[in-house]
Design a protein around this nucleic acid. Sequence first.
DNA 1: CATGAATGAGCTTTCATTCAT
DNA 2: AATGAATGAAAGCTCATTCAT
Lengths: 206, 206, 206, 206
Amino acid sequence: MAEAVQPVRKPRQKRGIETRQRIIDAAQALFSRKGYHATNSKEIAAEAGVAIGSFYAYFKDKKQLFLEVLKRHIEATKAMIMTRMQEIDFSSESVNEAIYLLIKALYKAHDLSPDFHREAEAMRYSDPEVAQLHDVFHESFRTDFAALLDSFKARLRVTDIEAAAHIVMAASEEIVHSTKIFGETQIEEDRLLSGLADMICRYLFK
Amino acid sequence: MAEAVQPVRKPRQKRGIETRQRIIDAAQALFSRKGYHATNSKEIAAEAGVAIGSFYAYFKDKKQLFLEVLKRHIEATKAMIMTRMQEIDFSSESVNEAIYLLIKALYKAHDLSPDFHREAEAMRYSDPEVAQLHDVFHESFRTDFAALLDSFKARLRVTDIEAAAHIVMAASEEIVHSTKIFGETQIEEDRLLSGLADMICRYLFK
Amino acid sequence: MAEAVQPVRKPRQKRGIETRQRIIDAAQALFSRKGYHATNSKEIAAEAGVAIGSFYAYFKDKKQLFLEVLKRHIEATKAMIMTRMQEIDFSSESVNEAIYLLIKALYKAHDLSPDFHREAEAMRYSDPEVAQLHDVFHESFRTDFAALLDSFKARLRVTDIEAAAHIVMAASEEIVHSTKIFGETQIEEDRLLSGLADMICRYLFK
Amino acid sequence: MAEAVQPVRKPRQKRGIETRQRIIDAAQALFSRKGYHATNSKEIAAEAGVAIGSFYAYFKDKKQLFLEVLKRHIEATKAMIMTRMQEIDFSSESVNEAIYLLIKALYKAHDLSPDFHREAEAMRYSDPEVAQLHDVFHESFRTDFAALLDSFKARLRVTDIEAAAHIVMAASEEIVHSTKIFGETQIEEDRLLSGLADMICRYLFK
DNA sequence: CATGAATGAGCTTTCATTCAT
DNA sequence: AATGAATGAAAGCTCATTCAT
């Protein structure tokens, strides 16, 4: 017997779209505040001001909703970094200065929603689908960054640009987490960020 | 109504100590295989071959058990790294070589129980107590590493040794995770590990 | 971790109100038949013909449910006594006769649900909240009774009307319990009730 | 197949008798402090300073232990009242005075262990075996009291002495409970106790 | 006699999900 | 579209009791 599959509602009208947004907003707020596992669907519906039935009309389950929130968060992060990168004039400034500004851009991007970022990181380690989303984002970013490096080729000392891009990004993300997510570090942010920039420049450039 | 406080059992006899061990072993296996949130106390008891009552005689709840498993895992990791470090002759070898061996030691330490390590990392991002345990470990390690760097002072180009120790360790851990935990990276391990060693050496030494 | 506060459901629709009623009815039946401590929430839900989830949607726990049943029982008892009292013509009848009818009213009120009454009495002795509910009821009743006595002032021999009201009520309740709750007394009800009426009249009136 | 019934241990040696006593003491303390249902066997064993195994060597189960505690408590109460009664010189004093002293004796008997008394009262209402023990005590007491009344026959106005004895005892017990167990009454003890004595005297005597 | 580790039935409670209104 | 009452599987945890040492 064919299952009566109630497909997820794809809102076309203004009201429906707004309702969907409200649920995503509520979810992001609660996932940030209490974490994914400690948040239940009723709470999300309540925070969004809709009935629990509406929740399941718009989202298959809590997990799918998390992925939607994550997608939106990744897009916002991407956009923010891109905007900041466009402000950097790579031709005129010294490469060291450019690297520092890049790290700052990454750093600032974590101000968007640090607690959600933290929760997303947790999920990345425990859930394959979340890891997958993260990877796609990371890889596209790495490609862009590799291209940027390629445009500096003359001054580069590294030869394996792809690997270098990955290494630099991974290192940067972890250091930023040290300061933004686990703020309890004994060492001040400035010392870590300038050390990081120093390390990256020495590594990449002649 | 005053609740009966039944404190956690501290086994003194051989049998009790073994039972406790069996539960920790079972928990580590299940947390690794299915993750913390998808594992329940009944399963752990079953895997350990004990009654559910014994679970709660030895551990307040699943969370406390996780922390016990984590403590043991951290101790084992520490021991393994220490052993491998003692095999490195820092006086005779080149510093570059020594750094590479250090990274290898860290890398090998992740073979102990990679899946549990992954789960621990997830918990670190979502649970303050786990983050705390990680931090204590990390800080003691950083202190040791800083002392090691200090012994090379003459050849060091970095001046803020503490920050440098933190940066190097954070970068190394994240790169190792790229390969050991999220093995799906397009880039081969060797390229990442040798790039990492290169970066660290250029950063640290003249 | 902040707990999700799921407040008790306040039914607005007809169906919800009926469900809540059915649970209260079932609970009263089971508390009467088996006692509070020997009754569990699953049984109550089953007897009410609802899922266990509904139990916890409407009531925080078994204790709160007991208090609801008790409130309803107290209201019913109050109403019954009031009705019977209104049938007594205090002006025309002899006070002795009136007292006897009052005792009879109290006595009859115990026919409403003698077993629940017994269980409530047990809870009164072991649970402060139940004791509190009982007290509020008792005190309001005592006030009314004192007012009634006050209207007979001319024929009263007692001067401390408040204390007298309390004493008379306490004595009456305990005697009625002897017969209604612990029916095994060797002595017939009539002897006890008429003796009680005699005692009270001699005490109160000239 | 014959069940391996491990009979309850009847200690003959000094040590065994002391152990049994310690368990009864511990149980009375805990039943008083937390109530029968909120006290578990492990706690009792711990409070008595014995292993849980010893508990079950001496007592079939928690219920039987409660009955043992209750028996001892009833005996102690009996003994106390008897002692105080012997101090009353019924021949020389006025009957009113004697009644007042009797009430005082009952009142003082509740100082032995008021909280255990309260718990016993709760159990009396919910457990037939406890009710039975109470009844036996009560009836023997009533018989004694009726005999005492009989010795005053000339001055008595009541004719049904048995019923009168029951009524007087029941009333007294409930009033004493008002003050000793539910101490929150608005009305002072003195007013209640002297009112009670007044009521009883008017009822019993010419 | 005494110990306390071990047992597991069974209780309370939560929460993702469905569906009649 | 929206509602929220109802469901019940399944998780967490307790505790009376047994029995090997």
